[in-house]
Simulated assay, not measured.
Amino acid sequence: MAKSTNNVVMKGVSGTIGKMLVFRNIAGDKTIVARRPKQSKKPLSDSQIDVRYRFTEAAYYAKSAISNPVLKEEYQAKAKPGQSAYNVAFADYLKAPELRRVMADEYSGQIGDTLAFRIIDNFKLQSVNVRILDENNDVIEQGAAVPLDNGLDWQYTATVTNPTVLGTNLEVTAKDTPGNVVTFNNIISS
């Protein structure tokens, strides 16, 4: 694969030459020259079909996101050199939030006790909701967590007394900008 940067002759060239070479423009002023890809004759597996659908959905989301000027600006601000807002939006759709850490040391089942959750997303989270369930999975309380100033953690403050903390299930639901919703469960065991 050859790369061309700021080449007067190649600037803006895209497409194929014969059935051999492909020219592609990427973010900025780079042109990539590569061999023309060959299409496989093997039938696609179910997981490959799922990936194709997911990529198609990501492309639709990214196109929609960059048509919103505010969202486009936010994605562009997050873009690294050589990336576009479209690339960042596309990746954001494909990556769901991840729970990294539950900090329940401050929670003893009393009103006003806090629970903190470190949830990572490659762009930003829109909301984090918490449900506190007893060992029979009955809801003790639920509500929205708030982001902390460190930009990593979300905190929930208890509003109901919980007499049996051990065995309590903390159900955390995180939603990111493209609408990926992930629910995590964590049982308090000590």
Score class of each variant (00 low, 15 high):
T5G: 07
M10Y: 06
K11I: 14
G12N: 08
S14I: 07
G15D: 02
T16K: 15
T16A: 08
G18S: 12
K19F: 10
V22F: 13
N25I: 12
I26A: 01
A27S: 12
G28A: 11
D29W: 03
D29C: 15
T31C: 06
I32T: 14
A34G: 07
R36G: 04
K38R: 03
Q39I: 10
K41A: 05
K41P: 00
V51D: 12
R52C: 14
Y53A: 11
T56M: 04
T56S: 11
A58W: 03
A58T: 08
S64V: 01
L71S: 11
K72N: 11
Y75T: 02
Y75I: 11
Q76D: 13
A77Y: 13
K80M: 09
K80P: 05
Q83V: 12
S84H: 06
F90C: 01
A91C: 07
D92P: 01
E98M: 14
L99Q: 03
R101F: 09
V102F: 09
E106T: 11
L115E: 04
R118G: 04
I120V: 14
D121H: 04
R131H: 07
D134V: 06
N136H: 15
N136K: 15
N136L: 11
G143K: 01
A144F: 01
A145Y: 00
L152Q: 05
Y156H: 05
Y156A: 02
Y156G: 07
V160H: 04
T173M: 10
T177S: 09
T177N: 09
P178K: 07
N180E: 05
V181E: 14
I187M: 05
S190D: 13
